[in-house]
Design a protein around this nucleic acid. Structure first.
Ligand SMILES: NC(=O)c1ccc[n+]([C@@H]2O[C@H](COP(=O)([O-])OP(=O)(O)OC[C@H]3O[C@@H](n4cnc5c(N)ncnc54)[C@H](O)[C@@H]3O)[C@@H](O)[C@H]2O)c1
Ligand SMILES: NC(=O)c1ccc[n+]([C@@H]2O[C@H](COP(=O)([O-])OP(=O)(O)OC[C@H]3O[C@@H](n4cnc5c(N)ncnc54)[C@H](O)[C@@H]3O)[C@@H](O)[C@H]2O)c1
Lengths: 230, 230
DNA sequence: ATGGGCTTGTGAACGCATTCTCAAACCCGA
DNA sequence: TCGGGTTTGAGAATGCGTTCACAAGCCCAT
């Protein structure tokens, strides 16, 4: 009766709210209105209220939301009341950076295993973790109770890595390789693609440049004088 | 008359199509139907046709699209016919990984400058680039004609970094720091937030776990017998 | 106790994106 | 030259997410 499906767009914003709320507790703010939270998270206040209403009625009319309580509720909804073990597949430039990243564990995500297929790398260490053999992926995943797989192999190896993660019983995958990978329906797959982000920026940058040069040309030829009013 | 605004959602998919098309030329495919391209990019074919129709009528009915020609048109639309210079602000774990990343330049993005505020790092090298002083950001950006700024500083320093990039005349920023940053309207800002991605995965992972345990409980108590048909 | 001022929670309107659908257009073989 | 098979391009329908708008509900001062 109470709850079912939270819209995907809302799920994606809950972490934003959470971050803002945690900032607030650090500044000893006890209560927050949807307006204030909206400002902090960079969205509009109706959105905040609607999003939070999917989780339940945790606000007080005329007052706002209790910061601590809301942190708890959002954390619970996001599954952050427990820790999650992650495995990084492919320990190159990027995999190493992720493995070294503190502030990972800060919200309950623990890098529990690193695997690579390069025999020159296996046995090496990153921080206090050993790089292990990709071939042992299933065993390692089971032993360490890994539930999230992070793929940082070259694109060509990404599908293979995903297949192995799935066969190890992992249902959540974050892919950094610029490749489309297929997983069964019951596996969540998210991707982060830097190159796509840059191309999107480039699209808008070009638009701006084109627009500017039109303006510049107009100014030079004096055609700006042909304005709407004759 | 011909073209105006391409929807944002379409812009975000053009790089995907482009990647698939480039793969195809490498496999010597000359012509592609919307159906095939859709399959390769992991979307539906009506979407492909509608997206491409925003750029113009580049297909041939009964035949499909010419792969080379489509690559050229999409590249042009995305502004990839020219090179773009990027500056990385904050050369730590992540900044260093990005700086070392080849496959960056592969599609016209060149890391042209690295800056950091840590005097211990300034003067050091990453690959063939020197780490320079954050204080000289404006001068460096101008000299190297940087048009894209990449922020990989700690969250607390991200807004400051963005302000300096903006004051250097940069209109496109990619932010990796987990912080909300404000920029003027004429600046494009995109963010990549690993921690948010993990939290989204955690949300669905938890749902799956909850659902599984319900199923397990049902099976044990035999209540699955109370099915829809009596 | 009561009224005034705030803020939530949510129906309703709106807008954007996706998907369905099919006439129009093209190629090719007979 | 013509007709059958194929595929595009775009209008229409649908669905999802955002935003508006306001009644309901809460707190506090009087
Ligand atoms: N480095 C970056 O900044 C960056 C940025 C965006 C995207 N990416 C993408 O992330 C991925 C990794 O990039 P990188 O720069 O770290 O590359 P890299 O070559 O430095 O590292 C890749 C690692 O994967 C390992 N590997 C290869 N095949 C494997 C397999 N089948 N199983 C397990 N491990 C395997 C290699 O041994 C290597 O250690 C690439 O797909 C790249 O396109 C990287
Ligand atoms: N490392 C990762 O894998 C990872 C993953 C996701 C997000 N992030 C985020 O990316 C950012 C960088 O992460 P990191 O692990 O590389 O951190 P890091 O501490 O290794 O590097 C940060 C760098 O920024 C520099 N810096 C600090 N203040 C600066 C300023 N005002 N101007 C210029 N440079 C400044 C520091 O000297 C340091 O070199 C952080 O915000 C982090 O949360 C990192």
């Amino acid at each position: 009766m109470k709850e079912n499906s939270v819209p995907e767009a809302t799920v994606a914003r809950l972490p934003l709210y959470l971050r803002s709320l945690v900032d607030m507790t650090e500044r000893a703010v006890a209560t927050v209105s949807s307006e204030q939270l909206a400002e902090a998270a960079g969205v509009n206040s109706a959105k905040v209220r609607k999003d939070l209403s999917y989780l339940g009625s945790y606000g007080t009319r005329g007052v706002g939301y209790d910061v601590e309580y809301l942190i708890y509720q959002i954390s619970r909804e996001l599954g952050l009341t427990q820790d999650w073990n992650c495995m990084i597949v492919g320990v190159g430039n990027l995999g190493r950076a992720l493995a070294n990243y503190r502030g990972f564990g800060s919200r309950g995500f623990r890098v529990a295993a690193l695997v690579d297929s390069d025999t020159a790398k296996i046995g090496g260490r990153v921080g206090d973790l050993e790089i292990e053999d990709f071939e042992d992926l299933e065993r390692i995943a089971k032993e360490r109770q890994v539930s999230i797989g992070i793929i940082t192999t070259p694109a060509a190896a990404a599908q293979g890595a995903a297949d192995r993660l799935v066969s190890a019983g992992i249902h959540s995958i974050l892919n950094f390789a610029p490749a489309l990978i297929q997983v069964p329906d019951d596996v969540s797959l998210r991707k982060v693609d830097l190159s796509i982000e840059l191309q999107i920026l480039s699209f808008y940058e070009q638009r701006k440049a084109a627009f500017d040069s039109v303006r510049r040309a107009r100014r030079l030829t004096g055609s700006a004088a042909r304005s709407t009013r004759p």
